[in-house]
Simulated scan of single mutants.
Amino acid sequence: MAITLVRTKLNNFIICLQFMLNPDLLSLEQKKKIKDAFSPLLQRDILPLEDEFRDEDRIHFEQTVLRSYDLGEHYEKVTNSLLSIHRT
């Protein structure tokens, strides 16, 4: 039983590592686009989480990051998951 639990946790950890966003995988152009999209966020105060995800600059930044990793189609799912975790 303990070996199965350890194996399951190890497999879950490996799966999580596969989905970490690794900047080494991005081109210089992609990194620049992400930095450019983040720049407006530096010019303002941090908003409460739910307001952040309604902010146009934040939406643009998040979508730019996800598109850079070919994950753009997951924007809604990622956003909804983060908001769900935040609310609990």
Rank of each mutant, 00 (worst) to 15 (best):
D51W: 01
L21H: 02
L47H: 06
R54M: 11
R87M: 06
E76C: 06
I14L: 08
D51F: 11
T8E: 10
S84R: 14
V6C: 06
N12W: 05
R67I: 01
E73A: 13
V78P: 01
P23H: 05
K32W: 14
P48S: 08
N11T: 07
P23S: 05
Q63E: 05
R54L: 14
S27Y: 07
L25R: 03
R87G: 00
L17A: 00
L17R: 02
L21W: 01
T88M: 12
L47D: 02
I85A: 12
L42G: 15
A37M: 09
A37P: 07
A37W: 07
G72W: 03
S27A: 07
I14N: 01
G72D: 04
A37R: 03
Q63K: 13
T64E: 05
S84G: 13
L5I: 09
R87K: 10
L28S: 14
L66M: 05
K32V: 12
T4F: 09
I46G: 08
G72K: 05
L71P: 02
R7S: 08
V78Y: 14
K77W: 13
K33G: 10
L41R: 12
S84A: 14
L17P: 00
R7M: 10
F19D: 07
L66N: 01
Q30F: 09
G72V: 02
V6S: 03
I34T: 11
Y75W: 12
L42Q: 13
D45S: 15
L26Q: 03
P48I: 06
L41G: 12
P23Y: 04
R54Y: 07
L71H: 02
L83G: 03
L41E: 13
S27I: 04
F19C: 01
I14K: 03
F61K: 03
L83F: 04
E56W: 04
L25V: 00
C16Y: 11
I3K: 12
D57V: 05
Y75D: 04
K77A: 14
L21P: 02
L83A: 08
E62P: 00
I34M: 13
P40K: 10
D55P: 04
S81M: 13
R67W: 03
E76Q: 14
S81N: 14
D24K: 06
L82D: 05
H74Y: 15
A37E: 08
L21M: 08
E29I: 05
